[in-house]
């Protein structure tokens, strides 16, 4: 397992937002976490990515205990994340968005003097990464001027610049048009198939999740109610009940 979560717990006031959650994620798979609103998906996500700290339980990445690690340390370890509300540098050009992350990975962030050759290497690598996510030819565009779908791709490209083994995506399909959703979905598949990455997706769009995922964890009221491949999830009684007549039928 590349990522394993055990007995992870987080309270908000009297509410157990995440209650003794276990999770095991196999390398080079797409693993989705779904559940109705308020199920604790986002809290679980934030616990894993270091935004908030758990009261109990542990998170392991490969052989390391990374419980409560800061986002900055996780980034250095090769755990990347993308954001539900696309998080890019709107006032910088597309290439610079990725170059920033590469320089950060290389520990060049605080340097004031940088040889032209080093800068060229950074820019070449950024160009390559952008080509992988389908942004070739848009390097000089201001990130804020990119179409919505491309901004999401750029968000993913920034994550890729960290050379991650694991990338966690917070609702990558949220608020996207149908065409953009297809683009991002094929991008996610590419991450697994071409780059060999492990992808963890928290998502509302259950239909897309069924198609994409190798394995799905379903949460309700802060606990895991099912954890299986999509085919089994589809027939799971508890999951059907959790969603009632929600969007699960799609």
């Amino acid at each position: 397992m590349i990522l394993s979560v055990s007995q992870l717990t987080k309270n908000f006031g009297g509410l157990r937002a995440v209650n003794k959650v276990d999770l095991a994620i196999a390398p080079a798979t797409i693993h989705s976490i779904i559940g109705p609103n308020g199920a604790g998906k986002t809290t679980l996500f934030n616990l894993i990515t270091g935004s908030i700290k758990p009261v109990d339980g542990s998170v392991r990445f490969r052989d390391r205990d990374i419980t409560g690690w800061s986002p900055q340390r996780l980034a250095k370890l090769g755990v990347a994340r993308t954001f539900q509300r696309t998080s890019i540098y709107a006032r910088l050009d597309v290439l610079e968005n990725v170059a920033l992350a590469i320089r950060s990975r290389e520990g060049m962030t605080t340097s004031v003097w940088q040889p032209a050759s080093a800068e060229r290497r950074v820019r070449d690598e950024a160009t390559d990464i952008l080509a992988k996510v389908g942004l070739r030819g848009r390097e000089a565009v201001l990130a804020g001027n990119l179409a919505h779908g491309y901004q999401r791709s750029l968000d993913i490209a920034i994550g890729l610049a960290l050379n991650p083994a694991l990338i966690l995506m917070d609702e990558p399909l949220a608020g996207m048009s149908r065409g953009d959703r297809e683009t991002v979905a094929s991008l996610i598949t590419m991450l697994r198939d071409t780059l060999g990455l492990t992808v963890v997706v928290v998502e509302h769009d259950v239909g897309m999740v069924m198609r994409l995922s190798d394995r799905i964890t379903v949460m309700q009221h802060g606990t895991v109610i099912a954890d299986a491949p999509p085919a089994e999830i589809r027939g799971n009684e508890a999951v059907r009940n959790a969603y009632l007549h929600g969007n699960f039928a799609q």
Partner: peptide, 16 residues
């Protein structure tokens, strides 16, 4: 990097 933390400090910490 300074401009990056000025524009979006959260993202900056998530890229390390």
């Amino acid at each position: 990097a300074w401009l990056a933390i000025r524009d979006n400090a959260e993202r900056a910490s998530f890229i390390g």
